[in-house]
């Protein structure tokens, strides 16, 4: 049987990874939903075609993340989900609305199509917002004051904007023509809004959580880590330059860059967040070590994980290769 300490770190890392991959992958397809034009059918079709083959697998990372919390850190899982009962339900309704709208819009009577498009867009916004809202409450240690709810609302807006950023960057990479240009403009706007959001969260977080401040300013590691926020800001500025360049020239060479940069931004922000809270899973309350499930059950899972996760990564890469390049017209089945 593997040691409890190792298992806590292993499953903690895996869960963090699942959340990060989820935020990036479902982030871009939620972003596309947030941006969906409700008037221009043809644009909407192309945008949806660009995420068609992927959205389902993207959402599965959420199932994995929740599943890992459930399996490895059951105490934390039940504290968190009970504290977030209502926002979770609202997020689920959002996910349901957008997940089915995606299919119904292509099959239902034409007169219902507009309604499904709206439900796709609204569902995406609700999902993104409630995820940000929950993140905000989490950072505030599930405090129930008005101040904490205000912060959570801002954080909700921040996540909508971050998903808009990575979603438009995805469209820059995957589309041509009108939508391509439109996406460049969207991308630049969301880049600016997201920058403000990231700065705000980074300042508020250490101000309200003493242990976070301690971590960033009170240890020897701090000097090594302080560059993270600055690198992040530098990336936003670089992103803006890249977009300006793409906008000014006719060349589409390098249209993958905004997506790559956005991914890096997600990565850095996430690293910052994880570093702030590690080893807590419930801020200030429960660490990964305290809430760990029975080591023998987790050992049984461990071998499955080690065998299966590489396979999952392998066929995920395969599927992205199959649909590589600019999205073609919608070829349903």
């Amino acid at each position: 049987m593997l040691s409890a300490e190792f298992l806590a770190q292993f499953y903690g890392t895996l869960m963090a990874l699942a959340i990060l991959v989820y935020a990036i992958l479902d982030g871009y397809d939620l972003g596309v939903g947030i941006l969906l034009p409700t008037k221009n059918k043809q644009q909407a079709d192309t945008m949806i075609a660009s995420i068609g083959p992927f959205w389902d697998a993207n959402e599965t990372w959420l199932v994995l993340a929740v599943g890992l919390a459930l399996i490895a850190f059951p105490l934390a899982h039940s504290v968190i989900l009970q504290a977030l009962y209502l926002p979770v339900a609202i997020m689920l309704l959002g996910l349901i609305l957008r997940g089915v709208a995606f299919d119904f819009r292509a099959k239902a009577k034409t007169k219902y199509r507009d309604a499904w498009d709206v439900s796709f867009k609204v569902g995406s916004i609700i999902t993104a917002f409630s995820q940000g809202f929950m993140l905000g409450l989490y950072v505030m240690s599930f405090d129930t004051s008005a101040q904490s709810y205000t912060f959570a609302v801002l954080s909700g807006i921040g996540v909508v904007s971050a998903y808009g950023l990575i979603g438009s960057a995805w469209l820059v990479m995957k589309t041509n023509g009108d939508i391509y240009h439109q996406s460049l403009v969207w991308c630049r706007r969301f880049n600016a809004v997201s920058l403000i959001g990231v700065i705000a969260v980074s300042m508020v977080n250490p101000l309200i959580n003493d242990f976070v401040a301690q971590k960033w300013f009170g240890t020897e590691l701090s000097i090594l880590l302080l560059p993270i926020p600055f690198a992040c800001i530098a990336l936003f500025i670089f992103q803006d330059r890249v977009l300006a360049n793409l906008l000014s020239c006719q060349e589409k060479e390098g249209s993958w860059r905004p997506f790559a940069i956005s991914t890096l931004i997600f990565l850095l922000c996430f690293l910052g967040l994880v570093y702030s809270f590690f080893p807590y899973v419930v801020p200030n309350e429960l660490t990964i070590y305290e809430s760990l499930a029975d080591p023998s059950a987790l050992t049984f899972m461990f071998f499955g994980v080690v065998l299966v996760v590489p396979a999952i990564i392998g066929y995920t890469v395969f599927s992205y290769r199959v649909f590589w390049g600019k999205t073609q017209e919608l070829t349903y089945y």
Partner: peptide, 14 residues
């Protein structure tokens, strides 16, 4: 937990 976990790993992603 592990039974649900194996379902996610071996079925849902695939």
């Amino acid at each position: 937990g592990p039974l649900l976990g194996y379902e996610v790993l071996t079925a849902f992603f695939m």
